[in-house]
């Protein structure tokens, strides 16, 4: 075998190796979490672990329901705020705004994406928490300390905007200009063209942007932890404090190891997060598959 052919073979093998590492990684993480949390799920019924609200580690009561709900609440509310915002901003920037505006926005978006989450957390504590306590909650005749699901969601929505917006901008940039011209030439207005043609053409990309945004928001830890209150309860409204899964793990891991199975419980919390993210991904994949069929 000549040297060139040998290198050729070697390089492709190397790529396969890299790829398999990438493929095995989530499996390994999942498996690790399952094994490490086995102490808990072998001794407690799975149903009560997930759906019970009793959380007292010292009495070996581990109900994850409040954490699961807090995580979902804060993520869903955050995305309800950021999804339409990102979509409209992307439509405006690519279809209506002068080109210089997009050029200015690009670095701004990158900077927003690059700000460390702890900085968002501090901003949340200083601005969002008082805003919720003093203005938003009273508007809805609610009392709130400000440390709440809503505060977490607001911070999280701002954090997810650059991420989602960037992806949607890319989606719209890839729609060919000629498709717009075709629609306009048939007598559509600009808005009709966006609504019936661009959104439909970009649907798959937009949905996957939302899916990735959801996964990212669900796992965001520090900034949310700083403003959400960290109270173990099933939140009754967005003005209540919550305690999402990532915060549970981050706050307690490495401490209180004297309590038996607490360590496993935190691993189980991570596993739940992992499973939720996989489920969400599968759901979004399915929606994408459906929308591609059109």
């Amino acid at each position: 075998m000549t040297k060139r052919l040998f290198i050729d073979k070697l390089s492709s093998r190397w790529m396969v190796l890299c790829l398999s590492v990438l493929l095995l990684l989530p499996l390994a993480i999942g498996l690790g979490l399952v094994i490490k949390s086995s102490d808990l799920w072998l001794t407690h019924a799975l149903g009560s672990l997930i759906f019970s609200q009793d959380w007292s580690p010292s009495e070996s009561q581990f109900g994850f329901w409040p954490f699961i709900l807090s995580s979902l609440w804060v993520t869903v509310v955050a995305l309800i705020i950021s999804m339409p915002l990102c979509l409209l901003a992307a439509i405006f920037l690519t279809q209506f705004a002068p080109t210089w505006m997009l050029k200015v926005m690009r670095p701004v978006i990158d900077i927003l994406a690059g700000i460390p989450s702890v900085v968002y957390g501090v901003w949340g504590v200083l601005v969002i928490v008082p805003l919720v306590a003093d203005i938003i909650a009273p508007m809805f005749h609610n009392e709130s300390l400000g440390y709440s699901i809503l505060a977490g969601a607001l911070v999280l929505s701002v954090m997810s905007i650059p991420y989602i917006l960037n992806m949607i901008l890319e989606v719209f940039r890839q729609v060919p200009v000629e498709l717009g011209e075709a629609s306009l030439s048939l007598g559509a207005t600009k808005w009709e063209t966006i609504k019936y043609v661009f959104l439909r053409k970009g649907a798959t990309g937009i949905i996957s942007a939302y899916g990735l945004g959801f996964s990212k928001a669900l796992g965001e830890t520090i900034a949310v932890m700083m403003v959400i209150g960290n109270v173990v309860q099933v939140p009754a409204s967005v003005f209540d404090a919550g305690y999402p899964l990532p915060a549970l793990v981050a706050n307690n891991y490495g401490e209180m190891m004297s309590i038996p199975t607490y360590d496993s419980a935190l691993m189980f919390g991570s596993l739940l997060l992992f499973i939720i993210i996989i489920t969400i991904n599968v759901i979004f994949r399915y929606i994408i598959y459906k929308s591609e069929a059109i």
């Binding site: 075709a182 030439s185 439909r200 053409k201 059109i294």
Partner: peptide, 11 residues
Amino acid sequence: LVMQRPYPLPM
């Protein structure tokens, strides 16, 4: 309008 390449609408 008929263009250089066909651009069917996404429907």
